[in-house]
Design a protein around this nucleic acid. Sequence first.
DNA 1: ATTCCTGTTGCAAACGTTTGCAAGAACGCT
DNA 2: AGCGTTCTTGCAAACGTTTGCAACAGGAAT
Lengths: 339, 339
Amino acid sequence: MADRDSKGAVRTITDLARLAGVSPGTVSRALAGKSLVNAKTREKIEGLAREHGFRPNQMASGLRRQKTGVIGVVIPLGHDTRQQISDTFFMTLLGFLADELTSEGYDLMLRRVVPGTDPDWLDRFIGSGMIDGAIVIGQSDQYDRIEDVADGYGPLVVWGNHTEGQRHCVVGTDNRLGGRMAAERLIAAGARRIAFLGDTTAIEFAARFAGAQDVAQRMGADIIALPTHLSPERAGEEIAAHLAAHAGVIDGIFAATDTLAALALTTLRERGVAVPDAIKLVGFDDLPIARQTVPPLTTIRQDIAAGARGLVDLLLRRLAGETTESLILPPELIVRETA
Amino acid sequence: MADRDSKGAVRTITDLARLAGVSPGTVSRALAGKSLVNAKTREKIEGLAREHGFRPNQMASGLRRQKTGVIGVVIPLGHDTRQQISDTFFMTLLGFLADELTSEGYDLMLRRVVPGTDPDWLDRFIGSGMIDGAIVIGQSDQYDRIEDVADGYGPLVVWGNHTEGQRHCVVGTDNRLGGRMAAERLIAAGARRIAFLGDTTAIEFAARFAGAQDVAQRMGADIIALPTHLSPERAGEEIAAHLAAHAGVIDGIFAATDTLAALALTTLRERGVAVPDAIKLVGFDDLPIARQTVPPLTTIRQDIAAGARGLVDLLLRRLAGETTESLILPPELIVRETA
DNA sequence: ATTCCTGTTGCAAACGTTTGCAAGAACGCT
DNA sequence: AGCGTTCTTGCAAACGTTTGCAACAGGAAT
């Protein structure tokens, strides 16, 4: 139907106007569904448009209207360059974001940046003129830079951790509370010497650790942080080394992520350590994998779908000129069999 | 540094030109690194640009140059509307694609479409003028439509299955061969009555099943297809039902996906069926989860990173005007402990 | 001094839409 | 017939870049 072959391909609104015997302006109005165009002309134009498979050029439209209908989504790869972008959690969030944005009529432009090599990443993206607003997935170690930019640019929402008095609008789980819940569970299950697996230079993880510390201190338990990268390749070895080094002394593990928890679980099995009998284990996220490990993971659930909805909702409101508060989602303890 | 505050914000190339005391054209040439501009003028312009945090508007540039620097990535959600976009395999592929495209200087525009409700999805995306080329992730049940479009549009590459005489350029694993390898392994391990778990209306899965059939027939084993959706929620029940219905008669399972295999594994455990003693199991993909199940999955590996590289490489060549052949990647049998 | 380069610059016309403004048409009213 | 409405439409100026063409300057060669 869309005649790619016939002599005069209809590429522009002007072509279509000539065909319909009207002016480009009228075609534009007809296609945009404005009320100021006669019903019959509109029908004719729409018919021709359909017949020739015509689609208005979004670049031109964007330029003229000074809005693009595109939302930028950035994943800053702060510490763990290689991993993050295929991290299950972020990817799932991205999937939900795509759904939400699509159903609001926006397109999604995905950009992966390495802040180390490009300190200007956020300004560059925002200033490109290609996007109406931006969502940053994960603060990584770029908290300060985001703060800087947020002052001068409205339509920006960030997934991550909320800190007292911060200026950028964030959506995220209450990580500190989540950390508390994890530690409480571990201690209730009998653990007294707890290890935290994760990279505490990432602000979200630091908050989870801090929460666990709160509780440990209050309940008279020990807790130490064992720095662990996120990417399975590196994490595997690191966890093995940690567990070997602390064999026998640890009786509880709080993993910053279900992925790490699952890794710890297999490592423990290899070492012949019984979970939860010898060591209790709690993860974080409640990814699908949490249900599939043996035994299934006790974990702290983040509501990813709600997070995506919140991000998009807040961004749209900011796009409309509102000023919005951050949105902190409650974590939820999911008790399965590892603690 | 980027003076958002000072009276005259520098938003356009014309602003910058006025500041530098030259014409907009010269600024454009300077910033584009063309050779026809005097070294001193260039320096001055670049300095001012940096100082004011100026970035040329990509919409305008795109409109004028008739190219956008953006590659569209579409995921058609054919059968299993809800799932696919958070499917681990696709998401991982997407991650690698983002990496590859970024390092080639392209941006990535992600679009999720439901072909059922929008039969025009591919034309619409391509015709939008927003993208220089498109990558389709997964043929889903849209094979014919893709074929139609591919005739008239060059810069299009698809991830999926290759069929004899097809007209669109595809990158993908040799699914049929993968299916053969899986069946061979199952039969070598002693299985004779094999069940295939997956949705054979999806062309990739159909090919995997066909490969397995080839081998089963040749080696005198039985194989039946048990239709199973991809999304864990639905698949869980379906698998449970399948296994209950065929209890005792099946001694081998070929799962179309590691996710399904993992699900089958937990279901089998719940039913008290020993793997691999009573039932052999082979998955497909070699996702991270394959390593983490108990026992770890024997599976057919797809090289996702190579796939992404291939997709981008071919697309770039087509963008440059070459005509390219499809790229079929070899699957690899990874023997672990389930078969 | 004239001519012919070469290297830099400015001018202005695109790219394909959208939209304020004004003009025209059609109609009803007095 | 004249006037005022209400709908439709066309005109042309934007939006911010890029780029072919022409112009100009400063030398070098004659």
